[in-house]
Simulated assay, not measured.
Amino acid sequence: MSGIVWLALDGVGHPQDAPDGSVWDQPLGTLRPLVDAGRCLDATLGVPGLPQSGTGQACWLTGRDTVRVMGEHFGPHPGPTLQRLLQAEALPVRLAQAGGRVALGNEYMPAYFHALESGAGRRNRMGCFPFAFRAAGVPLNPPGVPLLGATLGLPYARPWAGVGEEGAALDALARHGAALARAATEVDLLALDLWFGDLLGHAGTPDVPGDALAAGRSYLRRVDALLSGLLGAGARVVVSSDHGNLEDLRTKGHTLARVPFAGAGVDLGQPGNVVQAGQVLSGWFGLPAPLPGA
């Protein structure tokens, strides 16, 4: 199978586990039906503590229970142990080794590359997705791909201006989705690391800040528009998330919520957790699942 676009949400728990009045409680004409028709997955893997992006994303990317490997939920960035696993077993790495074509559609600014270079020899500050795609031997900001910022046009930090005047932004994102669908015909896997949902989720407080709720709802509307453009152009699409956070803005931290696994033009199978779903992903490309206990 080829031409799959992977929208990898970060920190967006399933609507079934969201409280009333959450970011999910709004019209999302493309995203919500897709999520409702998909799977609702466990992200805790039976390990105490709150799921984290490092191990959560590594589970998706490798199909291995990286929480058990680490002995705990770990993140946000992969340390040496997870880096070794990603270098050896991440989906883009294995696909590239098998002769497949992979690309990460995120747009990275010069400051990002400067921070990576200036941090040489220190703790890794790169997330699992850019780390895995670089380990596959492909560049960030790949040529020929319509690159997209993970904020989807929202400001990175407060004030999240423009939430009430987003019509033009939604139209632009739908067109961008169509452009990504066309680019995906040239590769086997085109991923987008949509990490901004987790950042917005960390703005939560017990009284649910109104600006964070408005921004979170706007962000999901933007994901909805992007998805609409992708599907309207005939793309095969998968939507995932690594852990809960944004769906419950009553708390600043991550949550124990289950996470979505949804798709169009793909067979989701019957996974119950994020590890099994990662194995489903690799199976689409004919790659074997990890050996038990390896």
Rank of each mutant, 00 (worst) to 15 (best):
W24G: 09
G29Y: 00
D25H: 10
F133D: 04
G21N: 11
P51Y: 00
Q97C: 09
G71N: 02
P51D: 07
C128L: 07
G121I: 01
H114F: 05
G71D: 12
A111N: 10
L95W: 00
G127D: 14
L31Y: 05
Q97W: 04
G29F: 03
V69A: 11
L85D: 08
N106T: 03
V102E: 12
Q83Y: 00
G100E: 09
G71T: 13
A132Q: 03
P19F: 08
C59T: 11
P80F: 07
R84F: 05
L104C: 09
D65Q: 03
T55N: 10
Q57N: 14
L61D: 05
P48H: 05
G63C: 09
L28M: 11
L41S: 03
A88Q: 14
G46D: 10
A103N: 10
R94D: 05
G38Q: 07
R64W: 06
T55P: 01
G21Q: 09
R123M: 14
G127H: 05
V69I: 15
F133K: 01
L91I: 07
G21P: 02
V102K: 00
L95I: 10
P139C: 08
P78C: 08
L86Q: 02
P27A: 15
F74V: 06
A58C: 14
L104R: 06
A135C: 04
D20H: 10
R64F: 06
G29P: 09
L61A: 13
G21Y: 06
L95Q: 07
H73Y: 06
P19L: 13
V138S: 14
G46L: 06
P92A: 11
C59M: 10
D36K: 02
F131R: 07
D42P: 00
A88L: 07
A90W: 00
F129R: 10
P130R: 00
L116N: 11
D42S: 07
P143N: 09
Q57T: 14
D36M: 07
A103R: 02
D17S: 13
E107P: 00
E107V: 12
A135M: 06
S118T: 15
A90F: 03
G105I: 08
A43C: 10
Y108N: 13
D25K: 01
L34F: 01
L95G: 12
G29K: 02
L104Q: 04
A111R: 11
G38K: 00
P143T: 12
L104P: 04
M126H: 02
W24P: 06
D65I: 09
D36N: 06
F133C: 05
G21W: 05
Q16E: 15
H114P: 00
P48C: 12
M126E: 15
D65A: 11
M70R: 08
R84Q: 14
D20C: 05
G137Q: 06
G127Q: 03
P78I: 01
P130H: 04
